[in-house]
Amino acid sequence: MTNLSNTTIAAPTRRIRWSRLLDHAVLIAGSLFLLIPLLIVLQTTTTTDVETMKNGPQLVIGSQFDDNLKDAMVKASGFSGENTGMSMLINSMILGLGFALGKIIIGMMAAYALVYFRLRFATLAFWLIFTTLLLPLEVRILPSYEIAQKLGLLNTYTGLIVPLIASATATFFFRQFFRSVPEELVEAARIDGAGPVKFFIDILAPLSQTMIAAMFIIMFVYGWNQYLWPTMITTDEDMYTLVRGIKQITQDLEGTNIPEYGRANMLALIAILPPVAVVIFFQSWFVKGLTESDK
């Protein structure tokens, strides 16, 4: 014991620890691996397509950022001329927000019913909902498409959002959270004259704030990045989302034209920003929601 403490005190000079150096090397390599593609995207958005074609990615920052941005946002692509960057951004926003809010509302209400009402077979119902985690969209895409098509939901926002919002994940998280809310709060609210709807709105929803924020991040990013379902359900170009629209632009690579590098990368950049903003904005709540329970 004594020896051990002596050595630590008697070694004031910091020696370079090789293991530490290795750790940092790995971390730096990892960060570069993630950052360089982003930097390339950023650089490409500032030069003309011809330059990019000729020289590839460079270290020079060009002057074409404004032009590329304008192109990306307002220039029409496709045949109909109806899907500009702006329209795709709006569509993506509607999908992301509708998807996240829909999932949160449905999940909260399902969890409320499961936890607070004496439903028959509530546990069974919960586990049935839970098993849908084993059946992601990709597994049931044909029947889902069939139903959406028969309901006439193709090329509508309803069709884009509603079939996706039933969420086992959100139901599960909200159920666990509601179960940790003390029973006495319900009883106090009952004596205070709050019915089920008032209790939900006045007490349970505000208590779930952090949980809602956490769910919002996860679900918004998840909804924003949806590719398969929007591809299936929307064929009109004015319904395209960003994630889908970028791909359409880069398709030109096969043709004889010079690919629109600047515009495509600008769109990619625009597609990245909203999820990043949401994560940054809700980050502290996110951590709180998943780890703490402030009751």
Partner: peptide
């Protein structure tokens, strides 16, 4: 009116709102 063992105060409401909630309803 009932007073609970763990007080059962609404954690997100101020004291004023806690006291007034039953009246508001």
């Amino acid at each position: 009116a009932m007073v609970f063992q763990n007080y059962a105060l609404y954690p997100h409401m101020t004291v004023r709102k806690n006291i007034g909630y039953g009246l508001k309803n």
